[in-house]
Amino acid sequence: MKAIGFIIIIILNLTFRIYGQENSTFKPYSPNSYILSKGEWNYSLFSKGEYGLSDKVSLKIHPVWLFFAPSIALKWTWIKTEKYSFSFLHGLSSPTPIMNLLAKKGTGGLISPEFDIPFMLCIENKLIFALNLQGGHKVIGDFGMEFALFNDKLLPGSSIDLPVISPRSAVYYKNLV
């Protein structure tokens, strides 16, 4: 039990990403460590939806964004008790299609068309934990690493420096977040 507490503290300190959450079907942003039951699903407008492949594994994917910004992830349960749970998440994504779409002249050109966007493949591996509180509330934290593989260099001027809309693109420019 002490070891589990120590791990939780380490993860909290390393990530600083902590979320409060209630149980509901619609979650705009849901890095939950809980695995859905087989056949159960959650959906979201902006982030990936989640479908329970089995009682231990779920698939995360967005049915519309998949075509513009391909991204898929598998989540599987490592430890699950009534008070807490740990899961691993492994994901693949490629921002190349959406960046090419946004690199255009005129209105809507979030990226200058002068840049050639190389093919990029991002690999994400993450440990997520959830701690159950009273009243159905949870505290959730995650810790992980993301790597980007390229076939060419992505020039820094091609970044979309817009908070909220594209806040997590550093990996494409620094190869690690």
Binding site: A103, K105, G106, G108, G109, L110, S112, D161, L162
Partner: peptide
């Protein structure tokens, strides 16, 4: 402008 969504101008 924090972000100009045209021609990649940005901030």
């Amino acid at each position: 402008s924090q972000f100009i969504p045209s021609d990649g101008i940005g901030k």
